[in-house]
């Protein structure tokens, strides 16, 4: 028995050592999540516009083009529970925040990060934002969520560069840069596949997400923060393949939210003809040019919103 246990320990020790070593090093490499968490921890009181949401805002809203001090705290596939988490985590420091910008895409009200193929991203919130939504190790480790080749490459690169390698793909203000220098994808094929991916078989996440969004808006209201909701632009290859029922449920619920809260403004850019093919990276994501266009439009809309100006936005703007 003792011989067996001894051999098992002997066999497992190098594996455990290797696992802990890779995990430790992987966590030291700066990435978008650790960067944004650090930025928010240090600069939350200076932020006047906070952008949350998924890849549609990560690649679609460039804070450089807002008149006010803005920061993009969105991440790819970030669902409403993590939007809410980030807002709640830093809300006591958002002393100057005036507007919260949140995309309501076709899928937003019906999805959670944990349910899709992107669930490997959950660990980023656990590790880098200290989010306690999950206790399972599956959601708390790099090694169980990153492809071995990829994590191996990152660790070797980091060690080779004496800890100088960074894995940050965002601008100083949190805007996703990857799409700005990439070639345009097939706009037809990506439209069809994205619409299929975003169409949910069950809309059972709706109630929970509505509760979250209402809480987010109510908390914002208490802090005198306005909420700008928008549906991002997309190309016809995407729009034509959407499920009309899911789209209609989304639109009805957004209308109800707008009616319910006085601090909310909503605008849909889904079929906005100001956005042309050249503004897109793929059928439902803007590129750098499109992001600049969308941000400037939203900026103008925020500044021109008379009721909001009356409620003090103009004073804060100066």
């Amino acid at each position: 028995m003792s011989q067996f246990v001894r051999k098992i320990i002997l066999f497992a020790l190098p594996i455990l050592f290797f696992v802990f070593f890779v995990e430790y090093i992987a966590r030291q490499i700066p990435n978008d999540y650790s960067y944004k968490n650090e930025y928010l921890s240090k600069n939350a009181e200076n932020i006047e516009i906070l952008v949350l949401g998924s890849s549609h805002s990560f690649y679609g809203i460039n804070p450089d083009h807002f008149t006010l001090n803005a920061f993009n705290a969105s991440h790819v596939s970030q669902s409403l529970n993590y939007d809410y988490f980030i807002f709640e985590k830093f809300k006591n420091n958002f002393s100057n925040m005036k507007v919260l910008v949140l995309p309501i895409s076709y899928f937003t009200l019906f999805s959670r990060l944990e349910d899709g193929i992107e669930d490997w991203r959950v660990k980023n919130y656990s590790i880098y934002y200290a989010c306690e939504y999950h206790s399972s190790l599956k959601y708390k480790t790099e090694i169980l969520n990153t492809k071995p080749m990829e994590i191996g490459k990152q660790v070797v690169k980091y060690l080779w560069s004496n800890g100088k390698t960074k894995n940050i793909t965002v601008s100083k203000l949190g805007f996703g840069l990857n799409f700005s220098n990439q070639e345009q994808s097939d706009l037809i094929a990506t439209g069809i596949s994205a619409a299929k991916r975003h169409t949910k078989k069950k809309l059972n996440k709706l109630d929970g997400n509505l509760e979250l969004i209402n809480k987010l808006i109510t908390d914002s209201s208490k802090m005198d923060i306005k909420v700008f909701l928008f549906t991002p632009p997309a190309l016809s290859s995407y729009i034509e393949n959407l499920n009309t029922q899911q789209l209609s449920v989304m639109q009805t619920n957004i209308s109800n939210i707008v009616k319910k809260h006085s601090n909310v403004e909503y605008h849909s850019f889904l079929q906005d003809d100001r956005f042309v093919k050249g503004d897109f990276k793929d059928a439902d994501h803007l590129n750098g040019i499109g992001a600049k266009k969308l941000t400037k439009i939203i900026d103008r809309m925020i500044n021109n919103k008379k009721e909001w100006v009356a409620m003090g936005l103009s004073n804060k703007n100066t």
Binding site: P14, I15, I117, P148
Partner: peptide
């Protein structure tokens, strides 16, 4: 032991999504 470690490495390197 080398064989067992190889199997462990293959599981880690080539394991599909759970």
């Amino acid at each position: 032991w080398s064989l067992y470690y190889c199997v462990v490495i293959v599981i880690w390197m080539f394991g599909g999504n759970q």
